[in-house]
Design a protein around this nucleic acid. Structure first.
Lengths: 132, 132, 132, 132
DNA sequence: GTGGTCTAGACCACC
DNA sequence: GTGGTCTAGACCACA
């Protein structure tokens, strides 16, 4: 009990999901950082602890942490652990903005190919905004 | 040569693309149908002709046609070839609508996580609509 | 041996080196690309073949290829293999320029802390240029 | 407090740095000696004082002092403390010269692989000398 | 055949 | 205790 991670509330890491497990872990950590529940300098759960918590292999967790480190969201230090970088939240926010822009581009492209007018698309966006 | 496909103008089928080759072929055919360049009853190029045209293995083309048939976009007749179904264009339009809706959902989700307001997102959509 | 890689002449991959094996493989491939012995579109040896050639675990080779892909030097396609990107050589050249500039900065900093004059440092560079 | 170290102005000792903590301490002491702020016979802060000042474990400081002693930069006397050796500054200067030479070697190697001429490299060195 | 993912378990360096 | 590297070997998707 005392050794379980009380910081991260990882969403459902599911082997049934089409996304690789390590990407699900990456996404979960980024969600925590984006939401501010993990701030600069905060320690992530150790590889072994998170591995035990999520019932996922240590190596899979390590792979996720490596990707987060490459993305500049965390840094790892031998013997110490892994920590959120200063720029982490900003980088994730940038990724999200790119993702949102790309999604809008796809929505417009697909919608127009399907014969939707600009008004149709704007209406769909309003519906989506109201729904969530 | 009269044996080359003069109907389909396949976009670039490239091994450098992250998408599997057969999915690229599927997408290319659907694009032709959605755009009306292939109508109900029209014949698709034969497996061998398309294989030669695209410099892609016959097995890959066969797999693409199988997926198109599963999707109800084409039907195959032993010895005659493959033809666009009556419902083909409608099904593809439905797929495109689903795709547009899903993209809008992602845009809203990502944008909000990045701190965007509804106005910000609506503005980005307007920009996108104006640009294309 | 038809199954051995006749393209890459990997330098000495040594377990005695302080550098991780996968980094040695990364460096070896980059050397081939920088020297033009591997050009855009050229296929790298398959993971299994290179693993057998270098007597290094398949997984270690895979890790090296993953890093090369992240660096934009190669791209991998399931079922096809790994290939050099168009921009590969340019990226590596950029890395090398950065490395050279950084090394000069360190040389100046260390040399000055050791009491060397600018003339001393320029002389050492001339010696180095003449020696290699 | 009179018990804090007023001799060493250690640069930023940070767990965010990729270098191990004890190496950062070693480097900081060597910097003080190379700059002449710590001369032969001068006493270093006690293990406990430096540990408290840098907010670093006593074991880490001890390990750093052991390395400095192995390098012949300081010597320790039971119950008295640690002191800079006569030869300390000279040894560090030697290390710096080796470092400068090695950096020049790397600069030449990398620059040539990137296609730079000798003139290019000499020009880059001049720029670096002028900038700092 | 190819690469992509996941796992189990070794050994090492650092703190 | 921590993360870093290397290995062996499974199973899957794609061509």
């Amino acid at each position: 009990m005392g050794s379980s991670s009380n910081i991260l509330r990882f969403g459902p890491i599911s082997i049934a999901s089409p996304a690789p497990l390590y990407e699900q872990v990456v996404a979960a950590v980024k969600r925590e950082v984006a939401a501010g529940r993990l701030g600069p300098g905060d320690a992530l759960p150790s590889l072994r602890v998170l591995s035990a918590d999520l019932l996922v292999s240590l190596i899979t967790i390590k792979r996720a942490y490596e990707e987060l480190e490459r993305d500049g969201v965390i840094y790892s230090r031998q013997g110490l652990g892994a920590f959120v970088t200063e720029a982490g939240a900003g980088r994730i926010r940038g990724e999200l903005l790119v993702r949102a822009g790309e999604a809008l581009r796809i929505a417009v492209e697909s919608g127009r190919q399907a014969g939707l007018s600009d008004r149709n698309l704007a209406g769909m966006l309003r519906t989506e905004l109201a729904a969530h």
